[in-house]
Structures are given as C-alpha cells and as structure tokens.
C-alpha cells in the first residue's frame, strides 16, 4: 500500500475492461449452452430397429 511504483494488476485490468467481459460472457454461453446443446439434439439416434420389428413385425 506504500508509495512505491505499482503497475495495475492483471486482474484489475480484466475487471476494468468491459469489452473483454462482453466477449467472455457471450462466448462461454454460446459454446457451453447453445452449441453443445444443439449438437446433442442433432445427434440423437432413431428408435432401434429390433424394437420396431418386435411391435410392427415385417410391416
């Protein structure tokens, strides 16, 4: 806390840089929630053929 020359610490730079925070927030959300979620929905497999066979027979 003395008078010695002090550079602004890295974390404070992050806290003060609102445009970086904007980038951070949007990216994490887009990757973790949107993209991951949509990929999983797109990759669902169809109902197994054996199960369909057992109910519908040869139809």
């Amino acid at each position: 806390m003395e008078e010695k020359e002090r550079k602004t610490p890295f974390l404070q730079l992050v806290l003060d840089d609102f445009m970086f925070l904007l980038f951070l927030g949007v990216t994490i959300y887009a990757v973790s929630y949107l993209i991951w979620g949509l990929i999983e929905l797109a990759w669902l497999s169809p109902i197994p053929a054996e199960l369909k066979q057992s109910l519908l027979g040869g139809k």
């Binding site: 992050v14 925070l21 951070l24 927030g25 994490i28 959300y29 973790s32 929630y33 979620g37």
Partner: peptide
C-alpha cells in the same frame, strides 16, 4: 459480477 458474466447465462438449462 464477473462470476455472473461467466456462469449465470448457461442456467437457461
């Protein structure tokens, strides 16, 4: 507040 920016959005889940 930064923790909000990081974590709160994905809770749409």
């Amino acid at each position: 507040f930064v923790f909000y920016v990081i974590g709160i959005n994905v809770a749409s889940a």
